[in-house]
């Protein structure tokens, strides 16, 4: 049995919280530059240019990329030969979030009560933690800081199976057209297809962790990703909803077997500040 001190896990989470909020992933910067070069709409080019300048300033001046420094979502893969020493894994992750947000001057964005809405927990806890056990003696932490504006435009449909892939494309495209500038396009779309109600939603979030634009290994799914991306970019919503060719940078789909009566489709919308990172201990 390998032992991992909970303090190491907390320090790792604290460090990831800061890393993701101050540095735009290189893949996103590259995609924004390519979009800026390809854009035919001058307003869209201006917005894309501002986003690249923003990333530069955030790095140079150590400011968060966005004032919404997100709700922390962690997918933890705990090896079956690992024992966490000290507080349990959930407490250790929340302690890391507490440290990372306080020391990094990151905005606490969590309300203690969703109905009363008048008390901020003050340290951005609790994080949303999804834990699964895996073979081996390692602990892998995938951490994302998820902004509220894009999360608010996420949704789930229990579609009639007969609509097929074309129905999925139309449903998602119409939803993104309606959302317009609200979720801060250009977007990355995480899509979960299959499973059941909650499984589809979890797949949609997990799909956002995939390296930007890396197609699904399944050829049919990869084709659907490309078709949705093209359809969404034909809406003309554009960066910040001000018009243009760049509404989404990528579509990532994960699938799962499902009930013969069902076609669950979940859409998790991610803004251009796609802040996530992975560490293996």
């Amino acid at each position: 049995m390998r032992q991992i001190q909970s303090s190491l896990l907390s320090d790792t989470v604290a460090s990831l919280c800061q890393q993701v909020n101050f540095a735009l992933p290189e893949q996103i910067a590259t995609a924004l530059k390519a979009a800026e070069a390809a854009e035919t709409n001058p307003r869209a080019r201006q917005v894309l240019g501002e986003l690249l300048e923003n990333a530069q300033i955030a790095g140079d001046q150590h400011l968060p990329l966005c004032q919404d420094t997100g709700l922390v979502v962690v997918f933890a893969e705990l090896g079956r030969q690992v024992q966490i020493v000290g507080p349990d894994i959930y407490d250790a992750i929340n302690e890391g979030v507490r440290q990372g947000y306080r020391e990094g001057y990151l905005r606490p964005s969590v309300l203690a009560n969703p109905l009363q809405r008048n008390t901020n927990t003050g340290d951005n806890t609790p994080a949303i933690v999804h834990l699964k056990t895996v073979p081996g003696e390692q602990l892998t932490i995938h951490l994302m800081a998820k902004g509220g504006g894009s999360e608010n435009m996420s949704t789930l449909w229990m579609l009639p199976p007969a609509v097929g892939p074309q129905g999925i494309i139309q449903t998602i495209t119409e939803h993104i057209r309606q959302a317009g500038g609200k979720p801060c396009p250009p977007l990355i779309l995480g899509v979960g297809i299959g499973g059941d109600f909650e499984k589809a939603a979890l797949l949609a979030k997990e799909a956002l962790l995939r390296p930007l634009g890396q197609p699904s290994a399944d050829e049919q799914v990869a084709q659907l990703e490309q078709q949705i991306l093209e359809a969404v970019n034909r809406t003309g919503v554009g960066p910040m909803g001000l018009g243009g060719d760049t509404t989404a940078l990528a579509v990532h789909i994960l699938t799962h077997p499902c009930h013969l009566a069902s076609l669950p489709v979940a859409l998790n919308v991610q803004c251009h500040a796609a802040r996530h990172a992975t560490v293996t201990l």
Binding site: L63, P64, C66, Q67, D68, Y105, R107, N152
Partner: peptide
């Protein structure tokens, strides 16, 4: 429409972009 991130030492404010107006 803005809820800024906390001001780091030596700055008047942290990140301060707009939130969703709707």
């Amino acid at each position: 429409y803005c809820g800024p991130s906390p001001a780091p030492p030596g700055r008047p404010i942290g990140a301060a972009g707009p939130t969703t107006s709707a």
